[in-house]
Design a protein around this nucleic acid. Structure first.
Lengths: 250, 250
DNA sequence: AAGTGGTCTAGACCACTAT
DNA sequence: TAGTGGTCTAGACCACTTT
């Protein structure tokens, strides 16, 4: 478990990764405390008999992991932990899906509506223009876990529903192959409570805590083409992360 | 705005960053669509007259940004967007603090309690052992924005309250200088609703949507020493992020 | 066999910080 | 001035995928 103090050139693990592990362990064990300075790159080269570019790669990895900071002319230092820099992944959201095959999508409705003011602004279309509204329920092992409501611009030049629906298909977005028409989007996570309809669909109680994941997706002309949100019960979902050094970083 | 098609060796911007921008723009403009293959590293070396290591650094940056993937023996390809890989930061949380000077912390109470079963498990102490309980209210411009409840192990060998309180002081954790006794921790974000007490403290309504950010912090012996949570009204907070290519990536 | 990315060398010069 | 990290070169050899 304790890594050797030398680089094993025969190891399947590349030299830079071995050095990362060595330094990481020194930090995790407290041998290198937050604020203390790491050996200089030249010293690490000499100590472990590896070339400068390899040492730099190792240190770059540690910087990327948020474990150290470098300052030109000063040196490399172990960072102390800051909550503000933590990031959470949406992988937890994906966990609602479970194993493939367990998950089904039930289409609750698809219709064409006229854009009100808010919708017109969100999709950059004129008020009263036609917009596709799609409502889906995601079911995992017969348990409804996610409600999705989405509005998409209606482009008469396209074969409507199938193409549009595939564009932001749940499976594609979360785990599989998204379309190449999607340039990117914005997401926000909000706290909310279930309303009557959502509670019925998800099998929960009205007023129960829930997450709303709102999305806007853009095409390669930077025009929004989809706006909507996912609703998940709070009890079925939480976002987890770690600060500092933990197994999962290994 | 459109970057030149050559590397400017006189630019203050390093060569690898210039190549990153060139490739990023080709992706953003749709010239390189999701799924399509980038020129090989050798071709990029030739085309832009830079050495292999420099090209690799550029591509490494794009991989880190999640814009491309590389497969040994196959090539480098533009990724399509996947929600599951998105991550969002706690910077939004930090936004509750506002400009420095606007923010005050009011100590609502600090006392020593006996650990119940749950608390004993969370802090890895025996049931009935003594634990410090601290409750704070964070106030920004006279508006209460954050309620913090925390339990810490009571170590009789330390000068109690001040040392312990500083260990996870709000200011230190979110923006400033954390102590070097903190190795790391686990965080979870949950959806919840305000109970009566929280509603009174935060000036909200009972049952109103809220976020709970729960934390456990560990020392360098991997012993948990702090467990607790922050409560923020949902209307004062949302977590935002982007997928794909947007300005903020520049 | 040809082409691709993955690792690594052994230096070079530059920009910045400290003394 | 000495020491630090930041960038970059011009190759090398390896592992892997595809034809």
């Amino acid at each position: 478990m304790p890594p050797n103090e030398t680089i094993d050139r025969a190891s399947y693990l590349p030299a830079y990764a071995q050095l990362v592990n060595i330094l990481k362990d020194k930090i995790a064990s407290g041998e290198l405390r937050p604020g203390s300075q790491l050996p200089s790159e030249a010293q690490l080269c000499e100590r472990y008999q590896i070339s400068p570019m390899t040492v730099r790669r190792s240190i770059g990895d540690l910087v990327a992991k948020g474990l150290v900071t470098t300052t030109q002319g000063r040196g490399t230092f172990v960072k102390s932990v800051h909550i503000g820099e933590v990031s959470f992944g949406l992988g937890d959201f994906k966990g609602l899906f479970g194993e493939k095959g367990d998950t089904k999508v039930r289409l609750l409705g698809a219709r064409i509506v006229r854009a009100n003011k808010r919708l017109a602004r969100k999709l950059s279309v004129r008020e009263e223009s036609r917009v596709i509204n799609i409502r889906r329920l995601l079911i995992n092992k017969d348990v409804p876990v996610l409600f999705h409501e989405e509005y998409m611009v209606y482009d008469p030049s396209l074969p409507i529903v199938e193409a549009e629906m595939e564009a932001t298909s749940l499976a594609g977005l979360f785990s599989g192959h998204a379309t190449s028409d999607l340039k990117g989007g914005h997401l926000t996570i909000e706290a909310t409570t279930l309303d009557k309809e959502e509670a019925e669909l998800l099998g929960g109680e009205v007023g129960e805590p829930a997450f709303r994941l709102a999305h806007t997706f853009y095409d390669f002309n930077d025009n929004p083409f989809s706006w909507g949100w996912f609703i998940a019960q709070g009890k079925r979902l939480s976002f987890r992360t770690s600060l500092g050094i933990f197994e999962h970083t290994a």
